[in-house]
């Protein structure tokens, strides 16, 4: 028996909106730790890892570890039927082949049940070891989204370089080139407006903008995005989900031919 009651149902709606175009189907895993997912995009270039910790749920019952295969567009379609202020409860029976999403309006005058068929998904689970990153950039998530969107009008790839001067996002296309430099600025009025760069060594990596743009669909989940870079590793683009966990996107770099 599984029963997870999330007061802030909009969080789950936003999570699905942020991953449904990147990943078509995935196993959601539920254990005492929480509700989680790890999935790759169909070309195995990017990976998404989601964790919603059990403490973040108003009620969290998970009698045994369970893995539920879902088609994400279908799940997103059902969650779109929940109001932004609704409480969402996820329910499933052990060994069952369906999951139920229950939506309660804030004043309890409307209760809806949506039952969705589960599917068997043979997915590869990857072990991601803790890593030391050469540079970690924290910046407003809206600023990062704007940069990715702007650069993708010029080119297909972005070179992210971190030096003492700041973080530089560059691209090149048929019509020309673009460079956007963001300097550390920790002395702003609001902490969520700050750009903070922790650099151990300069680093420069190239990534496909198509994926970066897809990751920025998680912008509504967090004011701040953290970008961790190391020359031998995929970049990690992390959005913290208020008091509950995180959504992390890993993207393998492109290398010179």
């Amino acid at each position: 028996m599984l029963e997870l009651r999330l007061l802030q149902g909009s969080l789950l709606k936003k999570v699905l909106e942020s991953i449904k175009d990147l990943v078509t189907e995935a196993n959601f895993d539920c254990s005492a730790t929480g509700f989680s997912l790890q999935a790759m995009d169909s070309s195995h270039v990017a990976l998404v890892a989601l964790l919603l910790r059990s403490e973040g749920f108003e009620h969290f019952r998970c009698d045994r570890n369970i893995s539920m295969g879902m088609k994400l567009v279908n799940m997103a379609m059902m969650l779109k039927c929940a109001g932004n202020d609704d409480i969402i409860t996820i329910k499933a029976d052990d060994g069952g082949d369906t999951v139920t999403f229950m939506f309660e309006s804030p004043n309890q005058d409307k209760i809806a049940d949506f039952e969705m068929k589960l599917m068997n998904i043979d997915s590869e689970h990857l072990g991601i070891p803790e890593a030391e990153y050469q540079a970690i950039v924290r910046m407003p998530s809206s600023e990062f989204a704007r940069i990715c969107k702007d650069l993708s009008t010029i080119g297909d790839t972005v070179i992210i370089s971190v030096t003492k001067e700041g973080v530089k996002f560059s691209t090149k296309g048929d019509i020309g080139t673009a460079n956007i430099v963001c300097r550390q600025n920790a002395t702003v009025d609001k902490p969520e407006d700050a750009i903070i760069i922790e650099m151990k060594e300069p680093v420069s990596l190239t990534f496909a903008l198509r994926y970066m743009n897809s990751f920025t669909k998680a912008t509504p989940l967090a004011n701040i995005v953290t970008i961790s870079l190391s020359s031998e590793l995929p970049v990690v683009v992390e959005y913290k989900i208020a008091e509950m966990g995180y959504i992390r996107f890993y993207l393998a770099p492109k290398i010179e031919e």
């Binding site: 790759m40 070309s43 195995h44 270039v45 990017a46 990976l47 590869e124 689970h125 990857l126 072990g127 991601i128 070891p129 297909d156 790839t157 090149k172 190239t206 496909a208 590793l233 995929p234 890993y250 993207l251 393998a252 770099p253 492109k254 290398i255 010179e256 031919e257």
Partner: peptide
């Protein structure tokens, strides 16, 4: 431009 690496080249299957 460039060769796109795969995520599975970096992380092991568990």
């Amino acid at each position: 431009r460039g060769i796109q690496l795969s995520i599975t080249e970096f992380y092991r299957s568990t």
